[in-house]
Design a protein around this nucleic acid. Structure first.
Lengths: 131, 131
DNA sequence: CTAACTGTATTATAACAGTAATACAGTTTT
DNA sequence: AAAACTGTATTACTGTTATAATACAGTTAG
């Protein structure tokens, strides 16, 4: 099951998107699968200390993406099979890669320069090749 | 001189940040240097088709970073020497790399996975390793 | 059935970012 | 000095995000 108590919210992006991503990552990693129930909007909002409508927004988007099934009165249920989970996993990473590539391209880097920069920054501060 | 007429604005990020980056890239590439005048807020806003205050916001930030010198009534002047230009150049790319790395790490990728993804995405759509 | 839960919908408020319109103040040019 | 330019400051409008209160509707457990 998803451990929402381990979801630490930050202020850099909308809360509903952080919840969305958390659920998607849970699916991508196999932590949750088809048939698993999610906590109710009210329960989760209390747990996270946010407004129920903020959770509702995230859940609504999950439903629109076909990840969640909601019936009025009943708890919401994950409805992704393994293929869908793999797709979500790929989407998560591809969207990140797309954003990263776009960002690096816009700064005028070549592909090789970008790869070198990523390589240097991954493990910590880069060597200063130039002041 | 900076050729603002070649600055194509997009809707993915705030205009004032796009202007800011354009000027910084001009400095980093040596297109402008210390002593060069920038077009007035009004002139540039008319050229770009945006509000003068949007340009003003970018220029104010440039001044706060010590890149621009403004006196009421007179045109704003670039005040970065070569060392500052080199620093800006490095900052531009390092900040991009930091953001890219952070983004890719958060999606759970390894360094090798991230490099491979960047490599695949740089020239266009990646091969689908999995459906 | 009833009570307590569930999801859904509506409306309102506040804060913030981005953009815009306008007025004010100083410089430059004539 | 006057006109035309310049930067600066104030205020306002818009959209997004987050929150909140409330009402309604369906399910589940007793």
């Amino acid at each position: 099951m998803l451990r929402f108590e381990e979801l630490i919210l930050d202020n850099n992006s909308p809360i509903y998107l952080q919840i969305l991503r958390f659920v998607k990552q849970g699916i991508a990693s196999g932590t949750v699968c088809r048939g698993d129930e999610l906590p109710s909007r009210r329960t989760l909002s209390a747990l996270l200390g946010v407004n129920p409508n903020t959770v509702q927004k995230a859940f609504r988007l999950l439903e629109e993406e076909g990840i969640l099934e909601s019936r009025t009165g009943a708890k919401s249920v994950i409805c992704t099979d393994e293929a869908a989970a793999a797709r979500i996993c790929a989407e998560l990473r591809e969207s990140d890669a797309r954003l990263a590539v776009q960002m690096l391209r816009e700064s005028g880097l070549t592909k090789e320069g970008a790869l070198a920069l990523i390589d240097r920054f991954w493990d910590g501060s880069p060597e200063r090749s130039n002041g």
